[in-house]
Design a protein around this nucleic acid. Structure first.
Lengths: 207, 207
DNA sequence: TAAATTGCCTATAGGGGTTAGGTAGTTGCC
DNA sequence: GGCAACTACCTAACCCCTATAGGCAATTTA
C-alpha cells in the first residue's frame, strides 16, 4: 500500500473544502480520513485532535479572507473601498460557507492574537481613513462595520430574509449606501440630537 | 422506581437551561437524560430525535425573545423604542447564551413560518414607524437592524472585541445613536450623494 | 546497507444517537 | 374492585465519531 502523502497543510485545506461541501460541523476527522482513503487514526499524526483541525481551518479561512480584503482595498478609498471590502466578506461567505463558518469559531486568546484577525481590524481602520472619525469613534465604527458585515452575511446564509420581497440583492447595496451616509454625516450628527431629548419622530407618533 | 414525569415541555425547558449552562452544542440528549436521572432511550418517547429537541429549544428561545421584545416596545416609540428593543436582544444573549445560540439555528421553511420569527420582523417594523421610511426602504431597514443587532451580539459573545479599548459597553450606545441618526437622516440622504460620484473623503485621501 | 525516522496500520475503548422490544406502574371503564 | 389499555421508562443492540497505544513497513540518512 502506497502512502497517501498526508500533511497538516493538506489536511487543513481538504478539511476546509469538505466544510464548504458538507458544512463546518460535519467536516469531521472521520469524514476527512474517508476522503483520503485512510484510517482515522492516521490523521492523528498530523493533527492533534478534532479541535485542532477545526482551529486550523478557521485560521486558514481568516487568512484567505484577509488576503482577499487586502486585494480589494488596494487602490481604493472612501465608499469605493467600503463597498469592495464588504463584498469580499459577502462573496466569501457565499462561495465558502464552511470556511466562513469556521472563521467564526471562538479562538483562545493566544491563537486569536496570532491569527489574521488583527489584519481585518486594520483594514477596517484603513477604510475609515476615508471618513472623518477620531478616536474613540473610529473604534466604535470598526465594530459597527464588523457587526453589520457579519450580521448581514450570517442572516443571509441562514435564510433569514430570503423569503420576502425585495430580495437580498437589493438590500445589500442599500445597507452599504446607508453605512457610507452614516459615516459621512456622523461627525456633525451627535450635535443634532442630544441623547436625552426626545426627537421628532417620537412626538410625531403621539398625535 | 418512580417516574420522572417527563414531558416534551419540560424536556425543552430543561434543554434550554442546559444549553445556557454548557453551550447549545453540548446540550445533548444524553446530557439531558443524565439531568433527569433517566436512561437516554426514555427521552425518545417525548422527543423525536436530537434535531427535534434542538429545534424545540430554538422555537422556545425565539418565543421568549419576542415576548421580551413586545414588552420592551409597549409604550415606547422612536429612539426610545429602538434602544429598548436592541437591549432586549443584547441582554437576552448575555443572560441566555445557549438559548440565543439556539435561536440562530437554521429552521426548515415551514417550521420557520410557524415560529415567532415573524413577530420579530413585525416589531422592527413597529420601531421604524417612528421614522419616515416608505417601502422598500422599510424592509431594507428591518434587515439592517437585524444585521446590526445579531452581528454585534454575536461578535461580542465570541469575544470579538473584548480585548481592546474602549470596552463594548461604550460601543453599544454609540451604535444605537448611529442607527437612530441614520434612520432620521435617511430620507434626504440619498440625494446628497449620487452613487457614482466620488465623495469628499475619497478625494481628501489623494492629496 | 544498517539505523533511524516517518507514515500509516490494527486494536481497543468510550461517548453520543437511535431503534426495537419489554415491563412495570397508571388510568379508565364495567 | 378488577381487568384492559395505555403510559413511562427500561434493557439491549447497533452505528458513527473521537482518541490512544503500539506495531510494521516504506523511506531517508549516515
Amino acid at each position: 500500500m502506497g502512502r497517501a502523502g498526508l500533511t497538516t497543510e493538506r489536511l487543513t485545506r481538504a478539511g476546509a473544502d469538505l466544510a464548504d461541501e458538507v458544512g463546518f460541523d460535519e467536516a469531521t476527522v472521520s469524514a476527512l480520513a474517508r476522503r483520503f482513503d485512510v484510517k482515522v487514526a492516521s490523521l492523528y499524526s498530523h493533527v492533534k485532535n478534532s479541535e485542532d483541525l477545526r482551529t486550523r481551518i478557521a485560521l486558514l479561512a481568516l487568512e484567505e479572507l484577509a488576503d482577499r480584503g487586502a486585494a480589494a482595498l488596494a487602490g481604493r478609498a472612501g465608499k469605493d473601498a467600503l463597498t469592495a471590502f464588504a463584498n469580499v466578506y459577502r462573496d466569501y461567505a457565499r462561495e465558502h460557507p464552511g470556511r466562513y463558518a469556521a472563521a467564526q469559531l471562538r479562538l483562545d486568546p493566544e491563537t486569536a492574537a496570532a491569527s489574521a484577525g488583527g489584519r481585518h481590524a486594520q483594514m477596517m481602520r484603513a477604510i475609515l481613513r476615508g471618513y472623518d472619525l477620531a478616536e474613540p469613534d473610529q473604534t466604535h465604527a470598526v465594530r459597527l462595520l464588523g457587526s453589520v458585515f457579519h450580521g448581514y452575511v450570517s442572516l443571509e446564509a441562514s435564510g433569514g430574509f430570503s423569503h420576502s420581497e425585495p430580495g437580498p440583492q437589493e438590500t445589500w447595496p442599500w445597507i452599504l449606501d446607508a453605512l457610507d451616509a452614516l459615516l459621512r454625516i456622523w461627525p456633525e450628527s451627535p450635535l443634532e440630537s442630544p441623547p436625552n431629548k426626545p426627537h421628532l419622530s417620537s412626538t410625531r407618533l403621539e398625535r
